[in-house]
Design a protein around this nucleic acid. Structure first.
Lengths: 201, 201
DNA sequence: GTCTATATCCAGATAGAC
DNA sequence: GTCTATCTGGATATAGAC
């Protein structure tokens, strides 16, 4: 166990798991150049692996995107579920979700950009459009519950969801596009206030 | 002046302006299949013109997308400006803008989808990212003015803009994706109420 | 399971007749 | 200014050695 383990005696140094390198390189390229402007060859170069490896592991460019997409989708769902588990009030849950999203946008810009900007229909032609909105469905459930229990005013649940989270997500997009200069976290209180108290003075 | 004017004596019947047919076909295809999944040949077939014509008029696929994009952008800016001209209060202006956008989404689904979903950066590599957010800048001006005059509560202007219009646009996307079944116009009052009165009961 | 070299296909773009 | 036929580059994907 002490020495280098058998099988591969070639330059095993400095190499990290291959799949990870491929995914990381792909995410970077997809985010910055767009899925369709990236060739398998680009990924191969950036990840410092061979074309063969890519096809072995993922079956092609679509395969990489698919894996990235679902991975990040699950991550986001987990984020929402943790917020639900850790907070009881609707307001508390919403605040926590937005806080986590803001944080995520600042610390993992590429992942957030990929999720928000990629039209998954263009590289996952057969998947339902629903999954684009999957996290939104979870969010809607939170709002719906709040309306039913009377914590929120009676209104259409989709409207409530869009008002709170649609606004937050738009801010993230403006931030990613460089339109907003301040770190998102500095806007969190205003976002929650605007959603809960409204525009009216 | 009475008869058919000279130059073109060939089958002039039933043919509508060529440029229009190309633009219409392209919008349709781009919206449904995505810019990168559409070939010039697809457009050529759908529009019932020759490849030569397309390159004569637009110089290529990018040229078509560019023209479509700017045309629709101007349309949207005009929409906002008309709302500003016809209403004085911030609330009135916002309501009118959202109403027009909702209407537009229902009557010209493809145009709205193209504007909301296309990542212009992928086919207009050299244009500033700002122009994606151009209408948002106009919207922000409206909100900013309202905050300055005291019609709205003091808050970050981007937050206010995102809360009101980001929410509305998210609803449009959910509607275009088939997640929301009702015509958007039925949600207008709720949207405005949610934005102005907030979530709180 | 990782690599290189190569085959196949198709999109974007052009040339030149009419 | 509209068309057909054609060129060219590059992308996906595979074959087969190691």
């Amino acid at each position: 166990m002490a020495g280098k383990s058998s099988t591969n005696t070639t330059t095993n140094v400095d190499v990290s798991p291959v799949r990870e390198r491929i995914l990381k390189a792909a995410l970077q390229l997809f985010t910055n150049k767009g899925f369709h402007n990236v060739s398998v060859h680009d990924v191969q170069q950036q990840a410092n692996v061979s074309i063969g490896s890519i096809y072995k592991h993922f079956g092609g460019k679509q395969g990489i995107a698919k894996e990235l997409y679902y991975h990040l989708l699950r991550e986001k769902e987990a984020l929402i579920e943790s917020a639900i588990a850790n907070h009881d009030s609707v307001k508390g849950r919403c605040t926590e979700i937005i806080r986590l999203l803001f944080e995520h946008a600042e610390t993992d810009r590429e992942a957030m950009s990929f999720m928000l900007n990629s039209r998954h229909k263009e590289f996952l032609p057969d998947e339902p459009p629903i999954c684009n909105a999957a996290p939104f469905v979870l969010m809607r459930d939170i709002m719906k519950a709040g309306i039913d229990t009377g914590e929120l005013r009676p209104m259409d649940a989709w409207v409530a969801t869009a008002a709170v989270f649609g606004g937050a997500i738009r801010l993230i997009q403006l931030r990613l596009d460089g339109i907003i200069d301040q770190p998102l976290i500095t806007l969190l209180d205003d976002v929650i206030d605007a959603a809960w108290e409204g525009m009216k003075i």
